[in-house]
Simulated assay, not measured.
Amino acid sequence: MYTREEAKQLRKNFWMMFGKRCEIIPQLLHRKKKWILYDTKIGGLDLKFDIDRFEAWVMIEVNAKSEDRRLQIFELLEKYKVILEEGFENGLQWEICYTREHGEEVCRIFVLQEGFDLHRQNQWADIYNFFIDNMLVLERNFLDIRDVLQEELS
C-alpha cells in the first residue's frame, strides 16, 4: 500500500513517462501540441485520459457548468455518433449523467479498458498504448466534426 505522498509521486511519474512515450509516436512527432485535450475550441467539451486502480479511459467529457448546455452539446454529439465511433470496434460508451468523485455532474463518451491498475508499473506500457491508440482515433473523429459542432452550437 502506498502512502498519500507515494501515490501522488507515482501518479506524477506515470504522467511524466507518458509524456516521454508520446514524444516517440510517429503520428505526434510534428505536432506543436501533442494532444488536443482542453483546447477543443468548444467551451465545456474536453478530450481526456484517465486511469485509476481498476480501469483506464479515453474520453470526450462534456463538463459545461449549465446542465442545459451540457445536454445540448451531448445531444449534438449523439447526432454525429456514427462519425465519432468510426474505428472503435465495439463503439463508444455514452453516459449522459456521470458524477465525478467530487459530486460534479458531467456527460462522458468513452472507451474503457478494465483490469489496468495505475499502481502496477509493469502495466504502464500497455496503458500508454491503450491511451495513444484510442486517443488518436478519438481526436481524428472529433476533428472531422468540430467545425460543424462549433457552427451548430453558436
Rank of each mutant, 00 (worst) to 15 (best):
M1N: 10
R4G: 05
E5A: 08
E5Q: 09
K8R: 12
Q9L: 11
Q9C: 00
L10W: 03
L10G: 04
R11H: 07
K12G: 01
K12T: 11
N13M: 04
N13K: 14
F14W: 12
F14P: 11
F14N: 12
W15G: 10
M16A: 07
M16Q: 09
M16F: 02
M17I: 03
F18K: 03
F18W: 06
F18Y: 14
G19R: 03
K20P: 00
R21S: 10
C22D: 05
E23F: 00
E23V: 00
E23G: 09
I25W: 03
I25T: 09
Q27W: 13
L28R: 11
L28Y: 07
L29W: 04
L29I: 11
L29N: 04
R31V: 00
K34S: 10
I36S: 13
L37W: 08
K41F: 03
G44F: 06
L45Y: 02
L45F: 03
L47V: 02
K48H: 06
K48G: 15
K48Q: 12
K48Y: 05
F49T: 02
F49G: 11
F49K: 06
F49V: 03
D50V: 08
D50G: 15
D52R: 07
R53G: 05
E55A: 12
A56G: 15
A56V: 13
V58N: 04
V58Q: 02
M59H: 02
E61Q: 12
E61F: 00
E67Q: 11
D68E: 12
R70G: 04
Q72I: 07
I73L: 03
E75V: 04
L76A: 07
L77M: 09
L77V: 07
E78P: 01
Y80K: 02
K81C: 13
V82W: 07
L84P: 01
L84A: 02
L84R: 06
E85V: 06
E85I: 06
E85C: 07
E86V: 00
G87I: 08
F88V: 05
N90F: 07
N90T: 12
N90G: 10
G91K: 04
G91Q: 07
L92C: 00
L92G: 01
E95L: 15
E95W: 08
I96H: 01
I96S: 07
C97F: 14
C97D: 06
C97G: 05
E101I: 08
H102Y: 11
G103Q: 08
E105G: 01
E105K: 15
V106F: 02
V106Y: 02
C107P: 01
R108K: 14
R108G: 05
I109M: 01
F110R: 12
F110N: 05
Q113G: 01
Q113H: 03
G115E: 05
D117G: 01
H119Y: 10
R120M: 10
N122C: 08
N122Y: 09
Q123A: 10
Q123N: 08
W124V: 10
A125H: 05
I127F: 08
I127A: 12
Y128H: 13
F131L: 11
F131H: 04
F131W: 12
D133R: 12
D133T: 13
N134W: 02
L138W: 05
E139T: 09
R140F: 15
F142S: 10
R146Q: 15
D147Y: 10
Q150S: 09
L153W: 06
L153Q: 03
S154F: 15
S154C: 14
S154P: 00
